[in-house]
Write a protein that binds this DNA or RNA. Structure first.
Lengths: 173, 173
DNA sequence: CTGCCTGCAAAGGATTTGCACTCAT
DNA sequence: ATGAGTGCAAATCCTTTGCAGGCAG
């Protein structure tokens, strides 16, 4: 049941790229597959780390291409990135829907790409062990409202990780 | 009118350093003065930028020393830093009387950490223009509570900036 | 006097860029 | 065929580190 949905997610993204007039290349496919696999495993990969995995998957792809690809695909709206405090930036597929098998309808795109930013969930990172976790959805809703009202600031709740100490590192003092 | 309090803030910090057994050197004084001045002007300076200003104030101070000084003084608890999304890290004078070595020694990191209680304020940064603003205090209180309850995660509300669009950049798309 | 702190220079690692070529469309 | 995308290598950028000497305490 996985090999199937796996393909769907990457394929759906490729389809969106095509619609946008972007070219489909082996490098881009490899990058998307690596990120998709990481997403499914709840991993958060940096550009450099993605590059390593792409190399094993498609050895001819150069590191520089990975960087350019990440930038291009993020610009196209099919990838998103999250800035972690001091440990760089990690990437996600921007595919609508999420982890659970939403609905394997090939034509599920139905609509256009959503907002390039702001539809993902928030992340929290432990400054002690570096672990990144997904935050419950809505944790920043009130903050977003308060900031909008006080400053006219439109918060992008998923663009930067919140920092602190995870349960494991905070408890055992 | 200000020359007085200016001196006071830096002096107070120097006093704290002395109490901690840290040495007072021209380089450290210059760094503190630069950061203090920036704080007063609501500026948020990166290590590199601090280095530039220190150079004009005390030309003999080497860049490497600025980096080491920032690390050391942050460790001593008299400075704090805020991670901005993709534009590096900026430094502040730590507010006397509240947080001490939040990340003092590597050992203290996961150990008897003081609660990052309400002292430091949160920052928001505009991803369009890069501007950094202070967030109203308390905006993250609810989020902090929700994260503690849901994940046992202790949020450090002032360690990373929240990203989004400021009033100027959000409105007039 | 001690050893913490510094200056210097060189190393380091991550990301970017110029250029010519290739391949997806 | 045509130019977006790529490979390669060099260049940058910011930050760190080894070492020897200097100054604060």
């Amino acid at each position: 049941m996985n090999a199937h949905t796996d393909t769907d997610r990457v394929e759906a993204t490729l389809a969106r790229l095509r619609e946008l007039g972007e070219r489909i290349t082996p490098a881009r496919q490899a990058v998307l597959r690596v990120i998709d696999a990481a997403d499914r495993a709840d991993e958060h990969l940096s550009a450099e780390h993605i590059g390593e995995r792409v190399s094993t998957l498609e050895p001819s792809v150069h590191r520089a291409t990975v960087y350019r690809t990440l930038t291009a695909l993020t610009g196209a709206g099919v990838l998103t990135h999250v800035h972690l405090g001091s440990t760089g930036t990690v990437y996600h597929l921007a595919t609508p829907g999420s982890e659970a098998a939403l609905e394997a309808s090939p034509a599920a795109y139905g609509k256009e790409v959503r907002q390039p930013h702001g539809h993902g969930h928030a992340h929290v990172q432990c400054v002690v062990c570096g672990r990144v976790q997904d935050a419950p959805s809505g944790v920043l809703d009130e903050a977003a409202g308060a900031l909008r009202e006080a400053l006219g600031f439109e918060l992008d709740t998923s663009h930067a990780a919140l920092l602190g100490r995870c349960a494991d590192c905070a408890g055992p003092a």
